[in-house]
């Protein structure tokens, strides 16, 4: 049966960020930017959307006098990501059947 996909995750850049963060403990903004090839502005907007949804945690601090943004996935984010993958799989199976 078709399940509605989570609109927060069903977007290329937000899904890429979540997929990166689910594999690591925490990552800097620069790491996410490098791996996704996104622009800083767009990435920043999408990170805020994920943060507002409670899917990721954003920590801002200073490192060597430069601002540093650290992102990590939350328990809510992990649960949402797992549900999203399950929904995708069931959707694909339904489509294949």
């Amino acid at each position: 049966m078709f399940k509605d996909l989570d609109p927060i995750l069903h977007s290329q850049l937000r899904l890429a960020v979540m997929s990166l963060l689910i594999s690591v403990r925490e990552a800097e903004f620069t790491f996410l930017k490098e791996k996704t090839n996104a622009t800083a502005g767009n990435l920043s907007v999408q990170i805020n959307k994920l943060k507002d949804a409670g899917y990721i945690q954003v920590k801002k601090q200073f490192k060597d006098n430069y601002p540093q943004t650290l992102c990590s996935i939350t328990d809510t984010g992990i649960a949402a990501f797992e549900k999203y993958v399950r929904d995708l799989q069931s959707y694909l199976q339904t489509g294949a059947a």
Binding site: S11, S23, V45, L88
Partner: peptide, 23 residues
């Protein structure tokens, strides 16, 4: 990478590729 929606198959492919990049 942009803020656009993907097909289900493309989504799974993206997840796989990003997890591999980190791993």
């Amino acid at each position: 990478m942009e803020d656009k929606t993907l097909s289900s198959a493309a989504s799974l492919q993206l997840i796989d590729s990003m997890i591999n990049k980190a791993r």
